[in-house]
């Protein structure tokens, strides 16, 4: 406080200030303007979103019918046929990728959150290794997917001679979603209150019993959310699979078969054929799948919240 002010001066200064009541109108007005502005921004964002989804669904709807879903693509300049094999390939690829990525990612996440702290007691090299791995995950999460594609092409397709195949694509896809799964697992584990760990250990449970008995069950919905997110990522990915999965529209016979996912099919229809309506139809199917996936995430995370609050 400025103590050099005389009381009179202070009184005069005070008089010049607007009273809170005079201020009230202006403060309320600025509140209204700000509120209106953000409301408008939100409205525009939602409108754009609905426009895109609506456009694709509306335009694509005309080409969607049972035949479209159940016949295989016939190729050609006109994009003959349906999308049956691409749906199946997508499912194959998702399953294969998740089977590889989920145990790795969840395991790594558990290690980073539950066990890596104990590494402080280890030697410098182990500590450095853990730190590097952490940083690596951070960086990988931000890498554009085409880089994973190039890596997969160079290593799996060419160097390991796995060719354009479900195997190459699955391994590359796993590399791509691994950081996502690790990070969501970490977040889910970090959201488990530390007091659960302490309570469990305090009861004489071992670390492993604590992880399996309390921590994982509590974090499971969060971890599942991460895996479902990865599924979405695989379904909508084109760049990686463009350079690792090939583009055959035949049904894959084994892991070494080439194939074509829905997203890849959209890309190919749009760039290599004149069947733009079929590209939109396939897109509509993709969008519907993604929406369903997001609903699933919402439901699991809501259950997660419920579980933590006990309601």
């Amino acid at each position: 406080m400025n103590t050099s002010l005389t009381n009179e001066k202070r009184f005069a200064l005070r008089k010049k200030q607007p009273t809170p009541k005079q201020n009230l109108k202006r403060r309320k007005l600025s509140q209204k303007i700000a509120f209106g502005f953000f409301w408008l921004m939100g409205l525009i964002a939602i409108a754009v979103l609905f426009w895109i989804v609506g456009y694709v669904l509306a335009k694509g709807a005309s080409s969607i019918n049972l035949e479209f879903l159940t016949t295989r693509p016939a190729g050609g300049f006109d994009g003959e046929g349906g999308i049956s094999t691409t749906i199946v390939t997508t499912i194959y690829l998702v399953l294969f990728t998740i089977v590889i990525a989920a145990p790795l990612g969840v395991g790594a996440g558990i290690y980073f959150v539950e066990y890596a702290n104990e590494a402080q007691n280890h030697n410098k090299f182990v500590r450095w290794l853990i730190k590097t791995a952490r940083t690596g995950v951070e960086i990988l999460a931000g890498v554009p997917s085409i880089i994973f594609g190039l890596f997969g092409f160079a290593v799996f397709v060419s160097y390991m001679k796995l060719g354009f195949s479900l195997l190459s694509a699955g391994l590359s896809g796993a590399c791509m979603v691994l950081p996502v799964i690790i990070r969501t697992t970490e977040e889910a584990l970090l959201a488990v209150p530390d007091s659960y760990r302490q309570a469990s250990l305090g009861l004489g449970a071992t670390k492993w019993q604590t992880v399996t008995g309390v921590i994982l069950p509590t974090a499971l919905p969060g971890i599942v959310t991460g895996i479902v997110l990865s599924v979405g990522r695989i379904i909508s990915e084109t760049a990686v699979f463009w350079v690792t999965l090939g583009g055959s529209y035949r049904l894959p016979q084994n892991l070494m078969s080439s194939g074509r996912t829905l997203a890849l099919h959209v890309y190919m229809l749009a760039t290599e054929t004149r069947a733009f309506d079929k590209a939109l139809g396939t897109s509509a199917i993709l969008i519907i799948i993604i929406i369903l996936l997001n609903l699933a995430i919402n439901i699991t995370s809501r259950r997660f919240q419920k579980r933590l609050s006990g309601k």
């Binding site: 469990s200 449970a205 069950p217």
Partner: peptide, 30 residues
């Protein structure tokens, strides 16, 4: 073994997100 002999209760109530029964049975089960 020590922590089986020396129990602990914490500042904030921290039951596990399990049933009442499973909460109490957790330690003996472990």
């Amino acid at each position: 073994e020590l922590r089986k002999t020396v129990g602990m209760v914490f500042q904030r109530p921290n039951p596990f997100p399990k049933s009442i029964f499973d909460n109490v049975a957790y330690g003996p089960r472990a």
